[in-house]
Design a protein around this nucleic acid. Sequence first.
DNA 1: GTCTATAATGAGATAGAC
DNA 2: GTCTATCTCATTATAGAC
Lengths: 220, 220
Amino acid sequence: MTQKNIEKPRQRAPSQRSLQTKAKILDAAECLFADRGFEGASIRDIAARAGVQVGLVHHHGGGKEELFYQTVARRAGELARIRVETLEALQASGPLNLRDILDCFIRPYVTLALSGGDGWMAYGRLVAHVSVDPRWRDIAAEYFDPTAQRFIAEIAKLYPGTDPALLASGQVYSVSAMLAHLNSAWRVEALSKGGDLAQIDSLIAFCAAGIEAMISPPQG
Amino acid sequence: MTQKNIEKPRQRAPSQRSLQTKAKILDAAECLFADRGFEGASIRDIAARAGVQVGLVHHHGGGKEELFYQTVARRAGELARIRVETLEALQASGPLNLRDILDCFIRPYVTLALSGGDGWMAYGRLVAHVSVDPRWRDIAAEYFDPTAQRFIAEIAKLYPGTDPALLASGQVYSVSAMLAHLNSAWRVEALSKGGDLAQIDSLIAFCAAGIEAMISPPQG
DNA sequence: GTCTATAATGAGATAGAC
DNA sequence: GTCTATCTCATTATAGAC
């Protein structure tokens, strides 16, 4: 039943307590890396927040950089799976338009962030750090690019002959807007005193109309 | 002729050499803060890149956090001035539509980044850090919000009665897309092998159409 | 203003007992 | 696996000569 990657033969499975400890460490690392970035979060802060000893963070994390990778990787697989499953489920019900495809990409993530617990919300801030910093380009290439490529390919089917760079730009702009939607509520509030926050449908409408406008500019 | 802020009475104006040293320090800080974030860039790295001693960075910067503020502030005033002047110049020639207004906000920045020297390009990455991290909300409120408010107000004139939060969200999404345009060329390249990069007009089209779609959703 | 030198702290990482 | 204790190094910041 388990489909965990088995890289090396182990004597035995990790104990229940070990798994819990590792989860606590990843939870703490996720939150602190998200809030303060890689250098801004110290191993000691992470250990303190997880309620464990400093040495344990090294034992489970295998160094700070490796811990950062693990923190990003933990939810990346599940997110990619949900996105693709959502896409394929909707495709089974008929042909999709641009907005449908973007909806399958954006809505699962935003929904998880808003109702999947603090971890998923922090993960959005973490991904924002990864997206901004070329230093983490390997992480982005490994965990995010495959899904992004898949969705770009779906969009390309709708607009054959379109410059791939244009579609890629639209994807990148849309991801940045999605992350801003999740992470910049404080900015929106500062700029609009007293109004309600924009909802997810507005975000998806923004991205879909934006991509359409890029691809098919007004004639003349 | 000088319009520098004079906060305290000083014996004399700073020497030419002092100004050059301070500029070198701010240049180095700008680049390193932009690349590695606040904690990721050390005073020593900044001093080394500026070609000065560690003590001088403290002398001119007044501590690391104060140096970060100064680094953001240095170009913020000029950027805000150019944006508003561009807007008012275009307004003098006739009524503006949404795309015109966004053009006045986005194009000056992107143009400076692409042709105004390495400093302005690095500044885009620096602003991205400020925009992501609530820790710097005071900086954003002081240096970026007034201009953003001005442009939001102009857009609001075009769509009276629109929810202010919707306009603020559109502004935040647009800024995030603009920063992605400047900072995420590496991501676009990874997602579109070999194609040309999208140009600034595509970005503005993306933002304008996105905002229009948010404000006036398709009926039905 | 500039430079050298150093203080004071916090960082990541590890060793070894249990 | 977990914990305590420690090592080693880089960091910010400052003091004081020039």
